[in-house]
Design a protein around this nucleic acid. Structure first.
Lengths: 127, 127, 127, 127
DNA sequence: GTGGTCTAGACCACG
DNA sequence: GTGGTCTAGACCACC
């Protein structure tokens, strides 16, 4: 499981882990009911305090992304539609909203943004 | 000078202020050598502690965006060429790029993003 | 860690602390990756407000002298080669040079300075 | 009268002026009972607030370096011996003392300082 | 436990 | 009037 932690960029480590595990799940690189590495193993791998991993797992469990079986480990939960389509769209929407806010202060019009988005879209489709 | 502070989104107030003043400068809404509001005035306007404004101003000064004259006030520094309108478009572009990256990991297509951007654009124009 | 603060000589406390910690690092009395005292501990030791220490540490971090690990403490950064024993002699040399310049303007001869330095040297050795 | 002010190096302007006028007097570039420029003239020349010049003159007068004649101007006072030898030596002495303090923290011995001073002394005599 | 942010308010230095 | 420093103490995030 490839996870990259940057120790010094200000983003809390446990949030970096949560985000990257979410991405691994959504992109199907870890499939449903597959086992995640034990807390201590992952902690050792990432050179991070085990408490930090534990916190990431705990919050992922509360949010329904993973589940724990007593005595046997931690596993990826079946992806419910609400976790994918709905909440994911909301996440993107709020990012878009912040782009508009930022643009307003930089004297960039909504029309320009749409244009830039379409340009970017073409770049993406080529890759 | 329009600055919006959100007290509850977790981003430190002084960083919000720094970012927005940078934007005002880059977009030429505050011109070179123009005086910024005094610390205490801005503090009162934003309903924030003067120390918080002072910290934002101090860090902007260290970074070379503004300069202070002892006893007489705070002023916008001459803009270095790196920070023109062009590079400020780049700022937005990189934000848009990260939206696409995030969307890809979340299984949201470029077409969907364009749609969402257009919806948001309509909301903006109504305000 | 020996740090001396003079409360009344007009030099801001946080600058005194910054300077002295730099000296301790350059002279290898605190070695690379060694932990500095926690903010609150040093504050208590120097009978100074924790915020004042925090400011000194923050500026030292920005300047690259120390680094912080979230939740676990503050540590001495690896020393860049510019800051070896050699350049720290240069620091003293430039101070001595400025003594001579000042003396010249005050009609005090180099011979007199040497005499005064030797006197001072004797005082130091007695302490 | 040549006086150089640096607006942005942190040293108060009035102190820069005081120091430079003292040096002009000690080095006999302005002789006893010679008239200094009026406050407003000097203020205009240095592009500085007249209050700042006034403060410098006031403190120089209190210290006995200059004197004012009502209605006719400001003049250089006769240099008393206490103003030259005694206080000047004290000034140098305190500078030397601070060199030793600084050196102690940098692991530089008094013996090394004496050596460095003697080296510097030779450089000075050549110029 | 660690450091980070923020507030409220005092006092000082500068122009 | 301006900004700068410092204190006292609260609350939060992270490990």
């Amino acid at each position: 499981m490839k996870i990259n932690i940057s120790q010094r960029d200000g983003i809390p480590i446990y949030l970096q882990i949560i985000q990257q595990i979410k991405n691994l799940i959504v992109s199907k690189r870890i499939v449903e009911n597959h086992e995640l590495p034990p807390i201590r193993v992952l902690a050792e791998q990432l050179i991070v305090n085990p408490n930090t991993i534990a916190r990431a797992y705990r919050e992922l469990e509360v949010a329904g992304w993973i589940y724990k079986k007593r005595g046997s480990g931690t596993f990826v939960a079946p992806i419910s539609d609400e976790l994918t389509q709905q909440t994911c769209q909301q996440q993107i929407r709020s990012q878009i909203e912040s782009v508009f806010k930022q643009a307003e202060q930089l004297n960039i019009s909504p029309a320009q943004i749409i244009e830039m988005v379409q340009q970017q879209s073409k770049l993406e489709s080529k890759e």
